[in-house]
Design a protein around this nucleic acid. Structure first.
Lengths: 175, 175
DNA sequence: ACAAATTAGTGGCATATGCCTATATTATCA
DNA sequence: TGATAATATAGGCATATGCCACTAATTTGT
């Protein structure tokens, strides 16, 4: 960091942030990542509050639901479907295992793999959460519009896809 | 990806999840929260990889940027602007404080409040991150389309707003 | 067949996020 | 003014997320 720019009007100011920054401040709300994270925090909070009575958070519920869909996926398949890091998935499964909602068993086909399954309790808990989830969904669509919600989900699924990740990676930076 | 050798409905199955569930399985990709979280994880990963050389994650960068915008916000103001729980913000600031990028000082006006400011190092680090961030943004817009990206950000900002939270809360379920 | 490369998962570390409770400070009101 | 409510934050606990390095098992190249 070099000496401060002499713009001619720099006076003595509090220990920082008073003067001009070393870059042009972009307009607000321009970062796609920040916009996504803010919306996600808001919605997770709203959904979690509705789901609370069943003792599942939205993250946990989405994992149980995905296991139900894929029947008995490997850790890797499940992680890929959730766009979730493998180790993150492993950590997320721990509380669910501890509470007896999921079980992880070795795969006899490929001993490197482990298969994740719902237990009876897991199925029951997922079933129990359905009406709460439907309530949250209904509220979202009422507040935001069902059509717009569907369009948003489609858009988000593009952004979450591996195709998008590859396009992002290939996107040459300015030549 | 291995095909499960599920021998019909009579065969041996893992300790659960073989039969019909106690609810009707909704079509995939229907949950707004899950769609948001998946897209956010993907984009955070992509942005973080680009930002890595400067040592900031996208979350940290967005906090520094918001502090720069608000000059010296209180914890509460900053948390509200970030749609972030206060205690989460407090935790997130710890590594930044430790690294000397931000400073938290008591407010003389209201001794309950603490003001968050960027240090010189924080300003410099933020400035250093700008070109990396612009690279990530450019990649996103090239892969997704600049127009669509802007539309998405506008949509997300609606979802993240307090107005939306209120509308969600009021959205009566039983009409 | 055997070493090398690849693939699957674990464990450690660090950050991210949120709830609940406690504490300190300020504002209100009888 | 003194009790009380409201506000701002801190701390403890738990889950969420991701990177890296490591181990185990399979696949591949020769």
């Amino acid at each position: 960091m070099q000496a401060k720019k002499n713009t001619g009007k720099t006076g003595k100011r509090p220990p920082s942030a008073g003067g001009e920054l070393a870059f042009t401040m972009p307009p607000p709300n321009l970062c796609n990542g920040t916009a996504l994270r803010k919306a996600t925090r808001r919605v997770s909070q709203l959904y979690d509050a509705i789901l609370a009575p069943c003792g599942l958070r939205s993250t946990q519920r989405s994992i149980l639901m995905q296991i139900a869909r894929q029947k008995s996926p490997t850790m890797g398949d499940l992680a890929a479907a959730m766009v979730l890091d493998r180790s993150a998935l492993a950590h997320n499964l721990k509380p669910l295992e501890r509470d007896g909602l999921v079980a992880v068993v070795a795969d006899v086909e490929d001993k490197r793999s482990r298969l994740v399954t719902l237990t009876k309790r897991g199925e029951a808990k997922l079933a129990e959460s359905m009406s709460l989830w439907r309530d949250a969904q209904a509220r979202f669509e009422k507040a935001f519009g069902a059509e717009k919600a569907e369009a948003l989900r489609r858009t988000l699924s593009v952004v979450a896809s591996e195709d998008f990740a590859e396009a992002f990676a290939k996107a040459a930076r300015k030549s």
